[in-house]
């Protein structure tokens, strides 16, 4: 079947099997491997992408069900050379170690800050509670999101600074 959806602002149409999961549509059909794929059982949250601005576990959604909607993946966070404040925050506050959980964490953080620009720590912890990080112990992820909340305008990336 043909599915058409907007991915990171660009409309894409592909012919896929109805059983294709959104995570595999993004990673394999479109080659957007920034979306990670972990537990496959809706538990770890590394596959989280935004659908119409809301975090969704893409291992538990069909590409077919997402047709007609807007998807945003980690590849769509930066604006050209300018990182999203959330990405910048993860750099500033060491929000990642191995990086496996990071795309899902950052997208959930983005959705949270879009809804609530100045969340308290409990709200941040609740928002990411469906996502597992094996490395950081979460403290630095929380700090990264707090950094992003405190710096809502995207900071210039290193590239731009040195250019």
């Amino acid at each position: 079947m043909h599915v058409t959806m907007t991915v990171n602002g660009t409309e894409v149409t592909r012919n896929v099997e109805p059983r294709l999961l959104l995570v595999h549509f993004l990673r394999e059909t479109l080659g957007l491997t920034g979306t990670h794929w972990g537990c496959d059982t809706s538990n770890c949250g590394t596959c989280v992408v935004l659908v119409d601005g809301e975090p969704v576990k893409s291992c538990t959604a069909l590409a077919a069900m997402t047709a007609g909607h807007e998807v945003r993946t980690v590849e769509g966070m930066a604006d050209g050379g300018t990182l999203d404040p959330v990405q910048q925050g993860f750099m500033e506050a060491h929000g990642l170690q191995c990086g496996f959980c990071t795309p899902g964490m950052m997208l959930t953080a983005r959705a949270l800050l879009d809804r609530e620009p100045d969340p308290d720590e409990a709200t941040i912890r609740e928002a990411i509670s469906g996502q597992i990080c094996r490395c950081t112990g979460y403290a630095t992820i929380v700090r990264s999101i707090q950094w992003a909340a405190a710096h809502p305008a995207a900071a210039p990336s290193e590239q731009e600074v040195t250019a």
Partner: peptide, 9 residues
């Protein structure tokens, strides 16, 4: 019930 991301669906 579940977690906030599951609750979105």
């Amino acid at each position: 019930i579940a977690d906030p991301v599951v609750r979105n669906r």
